[in-house]
Design a protein around this nucleic acid. Sequence first.
DNA 1: GGTAAAACTTAGCTTTGGCTAATTTGCATT
DNA 2: AATGCAAATTAGCCAAAGCTAAGTTTTACC
Lengths: 165, 165
Amino acid sequence: MTDQSPVQADLPAADTAGGAGEEARAHEMRAPEMQAEAFQAVRQARRSEVAEDYLELIAELIELMGEARPVDIATRLGVRAPTVAKTLDRLARDGLITRARYRSVFLTEEGRQIAEECRRRHEIVVRFLLRLGLDQETAEQDAEGIEHHVSARTLALFAEFAGRD
Amino acid sequence: MTDQSPVQADLPAADTAGGAGEEARAHEMRAPEMQAEAFQAVRQARRSEVAEDYLELIAELIELMGEARPVDIATRLGVRAPTVAKTLDRLARDGLITRARYRSVFLTEEGRQIAEECRRRHEIVVRFLLRLGLDQETAEQDAEGIEHHVSARTLALFAEFAGRD
DNA sequence: GGTAAAACTTAGCTTTGGCTAATTTGCATT
DNA sequence: AATGCAAATTAGCCAAAGCTAAGTTTTACC
Ligand SMILES: [Mn+2]
Ligand SMILES: [Mn+2]
Ligand SMILES: [Mn+2]
Ligand SMILES: [Mn+2]
């Protein structure tokens, strides 16, 4: 997950470049640039998925359990402690949390804001799926993955469909 | 993205383990196991995202352009050629495509089946989003990410909502 | 207060999926 | 047939996320 600034140098057009016998059939494919943009956006979104899940969970733990301990983060994410440790280091490096050795973690202002947005988004997606007729368990499950790929526009439509409640 | 068989050894329950002053507040959190399962399912899904996008695109290219050349795959995915080369090697290793050096790629039977499923799913998600009121461009964009996190149940509801057309 | 268990850290390994730079191959055009 | 360009490959770099094993620190409990 890097997308290391491709610098968008050339990426040759490669159109109508008929190589082997394939003289440009009836090509009702999307424009290559559009398609590439969509995939790039998805890769972009993927880069924040893990951080978003951590921040959301940390906020929840702090609010409902009083503190966010690495061990609880690990249990709820279903990963091992060292994985959590390393990811928390990255979050701290990126200024989203603060931490002291052998202590539970805290959100920075930036981290708190992202966490709030994620919680709101998560809630909307779950409520939307429930309203659509899905069972609670599947809704929670699918929402956990879908939430990271929902644009502002789509989220607005989801919210509208879900109703206020 | 590995999830290397955690063997589900112990992962200590760590419940009611009141550490610092936080005597088990009103914890309306999801059951830790449920939550962990959801996250694990998402990580599982993430492991096939890239393969699914490649297979879907390869099938499209073969059908509409006569063949699937690495250069076209790269252009449409918005990545560089060596990235495509390496990923194609993985797909070949996993028995999803066949390839000969300096030639375009082909789907194995297994690859073809996955590609078909992905195309169908992609179509349903796009149609669903359009029906919800989204514009074409955003629909395509969001679908590209959402598709990988839609369970069979949810897909069925999406299809129903989208109508037959 | 000492000790054992739990929690956390550190070190080190792996795979995936990006990238650039340099090389090799195939093809088309002269 | 030679040559040049486009396409593909190879080599090598990097970061993210996963893991195990082993060490350290904190906490709980007697
Ligand atoms: Mn999530
Ligand atoms: Mn979430
Ligand atoms: Mn996709
Ligand atoms: Mn797709």
